[in-house]
């Protein structure tokens, strides 16, 4: 993908496979920004707004819910947990039309909200947070309480810092999911200025009829992938811990 974005159209179509073009067309990346409608910059901004807010809300909501389910005794704790888990069994396509109707009723069509809010609630993330937080010993929380820590303080000063691996792992996976999602934006967004990157890429077909400038398409795609790669590198340290040792351990 990256190499193709540095080629000229004939080079891409050529039967002589070239691993690296003799004249890399770095200018393709500049052209890529004006190749799409909306501009790639605008689409990237849209995707960033949606992804950051959706993932941010998801991490906040899931960790709070997971904390409550893991560490507080209240009537119906188990039922709430099972209920949340059971929603994982419903495929998202089944709920797409009701979802559209609700969004329409809320007058949220052509806004960021339908792309942000649904992703902020994730049964899987709640499950993962709960399972992780349950392994943090109660005595640690009791100790903090006796030190004068409030219940929200427990969450903020103890639970969250200790949950870094889960935050990183879930944050990244959900970011990739939201960033790459095409279906929901396609259904909910008609205004081209609000197009996410994926939608804009898919829309290239509409604008250009046929994809003649494959090199520019590849340049767009590369640039659309780049943010995720950067984020992955940043959180990779915590990521491995998050997926392999999903339990609090003496550190």
């Amino acid at each position: 993908m990256f190499i193709s974005s540095l080629k000229t159209p004939p080079e891409i179509m050529s039967r002589n496979i070239q691993w690296f073009p003799p004249n890399p067309q770095w200018g393709n990346f500049v052209k890529a920004f004006s190749f799409m409608r909306p501009s790639l910059a605008r689409a990237l901004l849209n995707s960033t707004i949606v992804t950051v807010s959706s993932v941010g809300l998801m991490l906040l909501a899931s960790s709070l819910t997971g904390f409550a389910l893991a560490k507080y005794k209240f009537r119906g704790n188990r039922i709430v947990f099972l209920y949340i888990i059971s929603t994982m069994m419903i495929p998202s396509f089944v709920t797409l039309i009701p979802f559209y109707l609700i969004v329409n009723w809320l007058r949220w069509i052509d806004t960021y909200w339908p792309l942000i809010i649904p992703g902020a609630v994730s049964a899987y993330s709640v499950f993962l947070f709960r399972q992780y937080i349950i392994t943090i010993p109660d005595q640690v929380l009791d100790a903090a309480r006796l030190c004068g820590c409030s219940e929200f303080g427990l969450y903020w000063r103890i639970i969250l810092p200790l949950s870094k691996p889960v935050l990183a792992a879930l944050g990244l996976v959900n970011a990739v999911w939201v960033w790459n999602d095409l279906l929901v934006p396609m259904v909910m967004i008609h205004n081209r200025d609000l197009y996410t990157v994926q939608l804009a890429l898919a829309g290239l077909w509409d604008i250009h009829g046929q994809l003649s400038d494959l090199n520019l398409v590849m340049a767009c795609t590369t640039l659309a992938t780049l943010p995720l790669i950067i984020v992955t590198i940043i959180v990779s340290k915590h990521l491995i811990k998050g997926w392999t040792g999903l339990s609090y351990a003496k550190r």
Partner: peptide
């Protein structure tokens, strides 16, 4: 409330904050 009782406790597992 526990935090206003002016008591301190040492736990069997020590319960230090690992981070």
């Amino acid at each position: 409330a526990e935090k206003d009782r002016d008591v301190a406790m040492v736990f069997q597992t020590f319960a230090l904050f690992p981070h």
